[in-house]
Each structure stands twice: as structure tokens, then as C-alpha cells.
Nucleic acid binder design. Structure first.
Length: 355
DNA sequence: CTGGGGACGGGGCCC
DNA sequence: AGGGCCCCGTCCCCA
């Protein structure tokens, strides 16, 4: 434990250091010790302080601070099985009543099914049969995990624990079902054959992706350059790359759209991005029409980065001002100092015009 | 930069 | 509650 304490101090993981001191019976010099009245609250406290408010996305769990911290925590808490016991379902403000817990479920409606722990509420009978299994909050990343027994599964993503090992090649997995799929590589089983060609696939979704190749469907279109993709993730990659400039923030991850648009409504956000271009184009047109050699409508391929840059920063405006003797109704400065709010209004107007 | 395959994690349903 | 199975979305890697 002293080694852990030393390591925690070295790494600056104050919460773990505090826990070590607590276990070792040392008071330590951290005043936060006095703020931890109960074990449960302590645990929560570790979590909140262990996770940085600005949490980068890490790919390899072994590389993550969370991994390191979770490993420490896991050891401190005597094994991963402890997670599910120590951390209870989420609607857990102590003052919550059972009915409030029902309400705070992710689905936001009464659970038609069960549950044992909540009195098996008179199944409203409508909707899905077995909807909400009490959601639980991950103590490390605060994420809400839905589904009974899913929290331990999720916790393994933090601890790096991979209890399922392939007997053929030794590769380890965090989940049994992933191991099962992996085993198909050794058995040669590819249970998802393409009906149109000899291709066979390990995963159903691979077949689904593959089928779009045969159909030629490219339902995912870039709102900026109108290039179409067969796969949504390819569109996302395209949009994140340099080939398509986005003036606004990137599309939020699912469920985190600050504008409140529902998940999967990617079109909404794409439309907004598209509107940014349209607004920029309008700005240019407001300066006296399209630049030479640069089409301003959004339907054709064009150097958007340059176009947008000029539209927002204003050299085009200057050039046009110069060309027109400064008679443009919008000075370049007005372009340069436009605010997001103004641009939003423009976007809305542009959207209406386009409709 | 794109197309394609695969890996990974989360959620729903069921037992 | 725990776990299996399946589907989905996203990301990574490679050609």
C-alpha cells in the first residue's frame, strides 16, 4: 500500500493517495479527507476527482489515465467484482424515492417491466416488454450504463481486464461474445454470405456494409462538397479531414448535440454546416457577385476552404470594395467581425431561401 | 483521400 | 442480477 501511495503521489493522483493514507491509517495533509463522511461518498469523490473535466479520447486503455487510475482503484477496491456491488444504480440522490428513480431512467417513461427491486410496477403493458433494467453510472467515467449486468462489462474497459482468452492464439478479450466472434477467424466460419458475390463476412454489419457496394447506394452525402459515401463513418472521416472545411464545431457525438437535436439526426447538423457555406456564399454575393472562377452555389465542387476563408476573413470583400470603389453595401470589416449569432441568423435566412 | 475489413464498446432483448 | 446474443455506431488500419 505504501508503494501504491508512493506511486500515487508521484503521479499526482491525489484521490488514490488519500485512499492509501486512509487505509494505512495515516491522516495525511490533505484536508479533503475530512470531507469524506462515508465510504460510498468517498468512492464517488474518487471518481469525480479522478476524471478530468476535459477528458481526451484515448484509444488504448492501457495508455489512459483512467486505466491507470482505475487500476489503482480496482486494486484498492479489491477486485473488479467490487464495482457492481459498490456502485448502485444511478438515480441515487439519497432523497430519491423509488418513483423518482423510475422517472430518471434513460427512457424517461415508466418501465413496463419488473423490476424486482422496484416492486415490479403494474406493467403498463404498453410498449416494449422488458424495457428498463436499472441504469447504472460508471464510477470512473460517469457514463450511464443501461442494462442489467452491463456495468461490470463496461468497467473492464477501464481496468483493462480481459478475462476471455482465445485458446488458439492467446488473444484476450474483455467480452465473451467478442471472443466467440474472434474464434470464427480460427474456425474459418463466416456466417454472413453475400447473396450477390462469393464474399462472406464475420459480422452481420460487415455484410450490411458490403451490400451497399452492390446496390451502389451512397446515402451519406457531404453537405459541403456533396460527395456521397456508402458508409456513414467514411463521411465522418471525410468531413474531419482537410478535404472539407467546417466553419462550425464538429458534429457532436451522439446524444451530445448542444443544439438539442436528437441523435441520428445527422442531417440536421449537416444541414447547418451546409447553411454555413450558403451563408458564406451569400456574403460573397453581397459583395457584388461571385468571384471570378469561383462558383458560389454549393452544388458544385469548389475550393471551399479558400472560399470560406475569404468569405469570413474578408480579403475578397476588400478586393471587391476596391474593384467597386468601396461601394459595397457590406464592408469587409462587417464580415470579419460577424458573430456566431449573426451567422446563425444568416444561416436560418439562407435555409429559408434555399427551401 | 477513399474503400473496405475488422475491432471495440454500448444498448436491447432474452434466458 | 448476471450473462449470452445480436445489432449498431464509431474508430482504426491497410491497400
Amino acid at each position: 500500500m505504501r508503494e501504491v501511495l508512493k506511486g500515487a503521489q508521484l503521479l499526482g493522483i491525489q484521490c488514490v493517495a488519500d485512499a492509501c493514507r486512509d487505509i494505512l491509517g495515516e491522516t495525511g495533509d490533505n484536508p479533503t479527507n475530512q470531507q469524506l463522511p462515508s465510504r460510498r461518498k468517498q468512492d464517488r469523490c474518487y471518481v469525480t476527482r479522478a476524471v478530468s473535466p476535459v477528458r481526451p479520447v484515448w484509444r488504448s486503455p492501457e495508455d489512459t489515465p483512467e486505466y491507470t487510475r482505475a487500476s489503482h482503484l480496482g486494486r484498492l477496491m479489491n477486485g473488479s467484482s467490487h464495482w457492481s456491488q459498490e456502485f448502485t444504480p444511478i438515480p441515487h440522490r439519497p432523497e430519491d424515492t423509488p418513483s423518482e428513480e423510475e422517472e430518471s431512467g434513460a427512457q424517461g417513461r415508466a418501465t413496463p417491466h419488473h423490476s424486482q427491486s422496484q416492486g415490479g410496477g403494474a406493467s403498463a403493458g404498453s410498449g416494449r416488454k422488458r424495457k428498463s433494467q436499472t441504469p447504472q453510472q460508471c464510477p470512473v467515467c460517469q457514463k450511464i450504463i443501461h442494462g442489467a449486468g452491463k456495468l461490470p462489462r463496461h468497467m473492464r474497459t477501464h481496468t483493462g481486464e480481459k478475462p476471455f482468452q482465445c485458446s488458439a492464439c492467446g488473444v484476450r478479450f474483455t467480452r465473451n461474445d467478442k471472443l466467440k466472434i474472434h474464434m470464427r477467424k480460427h474456425t474459418g466460419e463466416r456466417p454472413y454470405p453475400c447473396p450477390s458475390c462469393p464474399a462472406r463476412f464475420l459480422h452481420s454489419y460487415d455484410l450490411k456494409n458490403h451490400l451497399s457496394l452492390h446496390s451502389g447506394d451512397r446515402p451519406f452525402e457531404c453537405p459541403l462538397c456533396h460527395k456521397a459515401f456508402a458508409r456513414e463513418d467514411h463521411l465522418q472521416r471525410h468531413r474531419k479531414g482537410h478535404s472539407c472545411l467546417e466553419l462550425r464545431t464538429r458534429r457532436p457525438r451522439r446524444g451530445t448535440d448542444p443544439r438539442g437535436s436528437p441523435p441520428s439526426e445527422s442531417f440536421g447538423q449537416q444541414h447547418l454546416d451546409h447553411m454555413s457555406v450558403a451563408a458564406a456564399a451569400q456574403l460573397l454575393e453581397g459583395h457584388g457577385g461571385p468571384m471570378q472562377g469561383v462558383p458560389l452555389l454549393t452544388g458544385a465542387r469548389m475550393p471551399y476552404p479558400e472560399l470560406l476563408w475569404r468569405a469570413v476573413v474578408g480579403p475578397v470583400g476588400k478586393a471587391l470594395d476596391k474593384a467597386e470603389g468601396g461601394s459595397s453595401p457590406h464592408g469587409s470589416a462587417s464580415v470579419t467581425h460577424r458573430t456566431w449569432e449573426e451567422e446563425d441568423e444568416e444561416q436560418e435566412a439562407a435555409g429559408e431561401e434555399e427551401e
